[in-house]
Design a protein around this nucleic acid. Structure first.
Length: 888
RNA sequence: GGACGCGUAGCUCAGCGGGAGAGCACCUCGUUGACAUCGAGGGGGUCGCUGGUUCGAUCCCAGCCGCGUCCACCA
């Protein structure tokens, strides 16, 4: 016998270990099986499971378990990302905490060795946490972005793109993070709103004939100014174009130039131009061939290109000093307070600087073309569809992708420089040397580029590099393109777009056919979870408290929201209760001998109740199947919730009780077998969402004595495919009548406060022959659930009985002793009132010739029926009302 | 400034052309052995506002208001 409740704490680890040991997570070998593959969005090795991971991985697991049960060769390929900056940060911090040497003191090789050491020790955390969620990844195929195979793929891609001239080296402005002393891509820049100032500076004209006023939020950059620009049509300045100003402090003459860039409406209309430290100014500088004076070092301290008293200063200290200098010089014209957005490094949190350096760039615009058209032509579809707009928006305005990073942890760029600066880009050092020898005619010392690649460069290859590319592996042939990618909208640009570009370029096909964008999990108040707010919900803690299945069901059921998921413990508790409900329903069945019958044929059942539930099961199976096939995770979960709780438990089990304890042996045996079958279907259908509880029930209800399919895991059992022919609308109609007779009757009883201990008769006053037959045949069910002593068929409702109308039939409860006449009259009047309103509305509608002629026939018919039914019911209730009046 | 999303019961959300639903919360009643992590019943909504299309609009279209997110903007 089953325990009273499900105990996740003991069951989950046991089942997970058993699944994993059995090899069930790997795709089946059958070459005839259709492949279905998912690659995991690789979490950072440094990471630990947060609630967003829990959602994302639950959905992937739901999908992969579903497809696996459908007989596909289902592969969910797991792995982790080396996460350049994040990991380097973690290890540096740890070194500092342990009082060790800093990264720079340690040197590159030793530091990288330390990181590997760290990875070996702590890098597996998140992978084990995924196991606690129940994730059925094929761990035998687990990959890491820095492992040997993936590194080879990275080198090959880099070299190939370089030789195709789609990767190039360029000196231009990058977003420079002074904290990490590395370039970062546009995407890693986060705009934050901060308080600042506009300082209005006067630059005196060189000829002493006046001044020109410019404004800036970054005064220190004036030390690198090489021009002042005005709009050519700005008449205020026409006379000044071509003249020069003397740049204060620096004392350098710089020209006043005409350019379209300045907006005459803004500020003074004149703009200081610092080509080496501002993206717009850089463009102006290029157009006018202006000198580009870099004034910072890698830490954003001022370098030797500024006057001596500024050298070595921090940029913010220099800012203050420049402003003071202007004030002293009498050239500070105005100071305005302002709130403006300032770019910050998303990892470091410090203000990033536009900085002139040599970096490697990918010609993303070229690669984007195919990637755009693949989505336009639905070779890859987004779910929900509207995310495609976001994707297009970015892809159509894509900028060159800066892929070099001045870090140590990552894929070192396979480029070697000769003594004259000539670069040899090859997959191996040997090959680079060979090329160099050929070029120089002798061996020359080569120096490998110090930089590593952006972490996203290797992530972009994930869907094929993990399958073995560039080798032509069986996995690659079989599982590429992958089927569905499930990820968050926040990495559509970082990751999805780049996988599209690289996949199409190197594999000639999209990396995935479908991208499901999952919601963002927030706290119950809708705030983003963050450590500093203290509102994070730790998924592992939730698993401890409610079990993995409860958390999984919650996330799945709430996943449909186009917006964010507001997660609360209360909600999880509710779904935990749902699991308990199913557990106990199974327990009930087990106690009543509902064992799976060998050769049971759901199409062959005779008892109405059983025909009904078989049909409902088929409907549910169909709905769940199509929902899951279309990523309708929430719909699948909610359908199962309603079926199991509101159909199976609330009605089927209750109706089955008299049959299971009755004398009709045939009905009893059939009901036992049907109940067992329905439960099995429920377990199968629910398994992708609640794998542990269903697997445990599947195992526990296996009959040890008899040979049965339960010997195998539920997770590898076959998904139900139930045909329409199992649906029996006649049985539906009968059960529907019983349910409303009982529900309405209960309402009457409770409305009158008839105590549960009272067992009146149920009078069938007026009903069709068919209805009488159904009620007579199921009298036992009605008696039990409505708590009535008997069903009596009468010609008229006796005085003092309370009538109610169900599907046109009049039933009545003789409960005179409980009737409060006034209250009952009020109840009836109210009901008559509602009916009258309905009649009036419907009649009016039907009286509209436009409606009758233009609305579809079935709608008109439906309204006619509605009218007829309402009128009949009204007449009956009015009659009852008048009789009440007579009694009074 | 541009784009996208969202405003439906106290709360969280379904529904998205033919008289609005669920879960939770709330009120009342209930220990008949599957389940109190439960059962039964009940109250509660001019479906953001204004127009338009339509026989008919919560649902489609336009405008507005409010909320959120992303991208751009640093002179």
């Amino acid at each position: 016998m089953l325990d009273k409740t499900f105990d996740p704490k003991t069951v989950e680890p046991r089942l997970y270990a058993a699944w994993e040991a059995s090899g069930a997570f790997a795709p089946i070998d059958d070459p005839a099986a259709e492949p279905f593959s998912i690659v995991i969005p690789p979490p950072n090795v440094t990471g630990s499971l947060h609630i967003g991971h829990a959602l994302n991985n639950t959905l992937q697991d739901v999908l992969i378990r579903f497809e696996r049960m459908r007989g596909k060769a289902a592969l969910w390929l797991p792995g982790t990302d080396h996460a350049g900056i994040a990991t380097q940060m973690v290890v540096e911090r740890q070194l500092a905490a342990e009082g060790n040497q800093s990264r720079r003191d340690l040197g590159r090789d030793d530091f990288v060795a330390k990181v590997w050491e760290w990875k070996a020790k702590s890098g597996g955390t998140i992978v084990n946490q995924l196991r606690r969620l129940g994730a059925s990844c094929d761990w035998s195929r687990e990959r890491f972005t820095l492992d040997e195979g993936l590194s080879a793929a990275v080198r090959k891609v880099f070299v190939t793109l370089y030789k195709e001239k789609l990767i190039y080296r360029d000196k231009r402005l990058v977003n420079w993070d002074p904290h990490f002393q590395t370039a970062i891509s546009d995407l890693e820049v986060e705009q934050r709103e901060v308080d600042g100032h506009y300082w209005h500076f006067a630059y005196p004209l060189e000829d002493g004939s006046g001044e020109i006023v410019v404004a800036t939020t970054r005064p220190e950059t004036m030390l690198g100014d090489t021009a002042v620009a005005v709009h050519p049509s700005d008449e205020r300045y026409t006379a000044l174009i071509g003249k020069a100003v003397r740049l204060p402090i620096v004392n350098r003459p710089i020209p006043i130039i005409a350019d379209e860039y300045p907006d005459p409406e803004k500020g003074s209309g004149a703009v200081k131009i610092t080509p080496a430290h501002d993206f717009n100014d850089f463009a102006v500088g290029k157009r006018h061939n202006l000198p580009m004076i870099n004034i910072f070092d890698d830490f954003a301290r001022l370098n030797d290109n500024v006057p001596a008293e500024y050298r070595g200063m921090d940029r913010f200290a220099a800012r203050k000093k420049v402003v003071e200098a202007f004030e002293q010089l009498g050239l500070l014209r105005d100071v305005e307070k302002t709130r403006h957005t300032v770019p910050h490094g998303d990892r470091s949190g410090v203000v990033v600087e536009p900085y002139l350096t040599d970096q490697w760039y990918v010609n993303a615009e070229h690669l984007a073309r195919e990637a755009i058209s693949a989505v336009e032509t639905d070779r890859t579809v987004f779910v929900p569809k509207h995310w495609e707009k976001t994707y297009f928006e970015w892809m159509r305005n894509i900028q060159p992708w800066c892929v070099s990073r001045q870090l140590w942890w990552g894929h070192r760029i396979p480029a070697w420089f000769g003594p004259d600066g000539r670069v040899f880009v090859e997959e191996t050092e040997e090959e680079a040397r060979r090329q160099a020898r050929e070029h120089y005619g002798r061996d020359e010392p080569l120096r490998q580029d110090e930089d590593v690649l952006d972490t996203w460069f290797s992530s972009a290859l994930w869907p094929f590099s993990t399958l073995g590319w560039p080798e032509k592996t069986d996995d690659l042939r079989r599982f590429y393109p992958t089927h569905t990618l499930i990820t968050g909208f926040d990495i559509i640009f970082f990751w999805v777009a780049r996988m599209m570009m690289q996949g199409l370029h190197f594999m000639g096909d999209v990396p995935f056919k479908r991208v499901f964008i999952n919601a963002l999990v927030r706290d119950a108040e809708g705030r983003k979870m963050s450590k500093s707010k203290g509102n994070v919900m730790d998924p592992l803690e939730l698993v401890d408290d409610y079990g993995a299945d409860a958390l999984r069901f919650t996330l799945t059921a709430m996943s449909g929201q186009a917006r964010d998921i507001k997660l609360s413990r209360q909600r999880i508790e509710g779904y935990r209760n749902f699991g308990t409900k199913l557990w106990n329903a199974t327990r009930f069945c087990q106690m009543n001998g509902c064992a799976r019958a060998e050769g049971f044929d759901p199409a062959g059942v005779k008892v109405t109740l059983n025909r009904w539930i078989v049909g409902e099961t088929a409907r549910t199976a169909q709905a769940v199947t199509s929902a899951l096939a279309d990523c309708g995770f929430d719909e699948a979960a909610n359908t199962l919730y309603r079926f199991i709780w509101n159909q199976f438990c609330d009605w089927y089990v209750e109706f089955a009780k008299p049959l299971l304890t009755g004398d009709d042996q045939a009905a009893k045996v059939e009901t036992q077998a049907t109940a067992a079958w329905v439960l099995d279907q429920a377990l199968l259908l629910l398994h992708p969402v609640m794998p542990f509880l269903t697997e445990e029930l599947w195992g526990q209800t296996a009959d040890a004595g008899a040979p049965r399919a339960h010997a195998d895991f539920l997770m590898t059992a076959r998904w139900p495919e139930l045909p329409d022919s199992l649906i029996d609308t006649a049985a539906d109609a009968e059960i529907a009548l019983l349910i409303s007779a009982i529900t309405e009757g209960r309402s009457v009883r409770q409305g009158l406060n008839v105590p549960p201990s009272a067992h009146p008769a149920l009078l069938v006053v007026d009903a069709t022959d068919r209805q009488r037959e159904v009620l007579r045949a199921n009298a036992a069910l009605v008696q039990r659930l409505l708590r009535v002593a008997e069903l009596r068929f009468v010609d008229a409702a006796p005085e003092g009985s309370i009538p109610y109308v169900v599907e046109g039939a009049t039933l009545a409860l003789p409960v005179a002793e409980f009737i409060d006449l006034a209250a009952e009259r009020a109840r009836l009047s109210k009901e008559v009132g509602t009916l009258s309103q309905d009649i009036e509305r419907t009649a009016k509608k039907l009286g509209n010739p436009d409606f009758v002629s233009r609305a579809p026939e079935e709608v008109v018919e439906e309204n006619r029926e509605r009218l007829a039914e309402a009128e009949a019911a009204k007449a009956k209730l009015e009659e009852a009302l008048s009789r009440l009046g007579a009694v009074a």
